[in-house]
Amino acid sequence: MARILAVDDSAAMRQMVGITLTGAGHEVYQAADGREALQIAERERFDLVITDVNMPVMDGLTLVRHLRNMPSYRGVPLLVLTTEATTEKKLEGKAAGATGWLVKPFNPDRLLATVAKVLS
């Protein structure tokens, strides 16, 4: 089972993602924006980060860029979970270093399958 950092400014969303992942046996940490996520990521080790895009303080794609520049996160899968569905935005995510892109509303089974896939 993996240690996962879930990042979303919506408390309802964090709750849903958290319940889904802990229900599958994962250990889940939460952050409400990119900056908070970076602070947690610096002192903890994670096997996977799942982040929203549109957040106050620091957005999810900026977070992905920062994490990719940290030696300890260079090889860690970084998934984006967002309402953004345009090709343009996805390409931006890919260029930032994201591993994959999931469009909300999220499907718990598909989220868990994607998590299992990127962790293997």
């Binding site: 569905a85 995510g93 591993t99 909300k104 509303p105 999220f106 499907n107 598909r110 994607t114 990127v118």
Partner: peptide, 9 residues
Amino acid sequence: ADGGEVELF
């Protein structure tokens, strides 16, 4: 309603 697409890069 039951979930958007998933794309792995």
